[in-house]
Amino acid sequence: MKKTFLIIFCFLFMCNTLLADDKNDAKMMIKSKIDSAISVLQNEDLKKEESNEKIIGIVSPVFNFGLIAKLSMGKTNWQKLSSDNKKRFVDLFENRMKSSYLEKLNMYTNESINYGEPIQEGRKVQVPTELISKDNKINMIYKLYKSKGLWKIYDLEVEGVSVVKTYKTQFDEVLKKGTVENLMKELEKPESE
């Protein structure tokens, strides 16, 4: 009988550590991706375009760009899009996300990066990071969810500002005043300061 209880306790204990590992898995994954992205950035032999391409190759697999695009569009707006437009929108949005993420990394990686304690809430995990540059520091939280056994990023929070939320209010505004075609045109425009 004692043995059985021991087994139960061991089992309980194991479950606990398994759960804890879950969120740390997400953190370690983010850490390894960013670390390798930064080693690319610090490699001075590479041209800007080359290093950008390499970094995108490293981080892209952990971003679910399709989902980020859909969440930013919102259910109501998304369902109104034709399937051609859905694909076009996701592609355009993906490019924009990639270039703005690259820019953030480029701006804030000359000093160091701190990784905070991950916070888990069911299938979702938030991994807080702090990017420190010579001049400034910013908080960046990676929001991940587990799908098909893999952790994927579905939103980024920079200084308390969710990227998905910011895009969502903009898409709502553009679609309220204009058409889907207007929105696509805006997204196709080259980014200007």
């Binding site: 924009r96 939320k165 910011t166 903009q170 505004e173 805006e186 980014e191 200007s192």
Partner: peptide
């Protein structure tokens, strides 16, 4: 960088 990433800058900065 924030402005570059935005589509409708006025709305974006209000939300930010």
């Amino acid at each position: 960088s924030l402005k570059k990433a935005s589509i409708d800058p006025y709305t974006a900065f209000r939300n930010i």
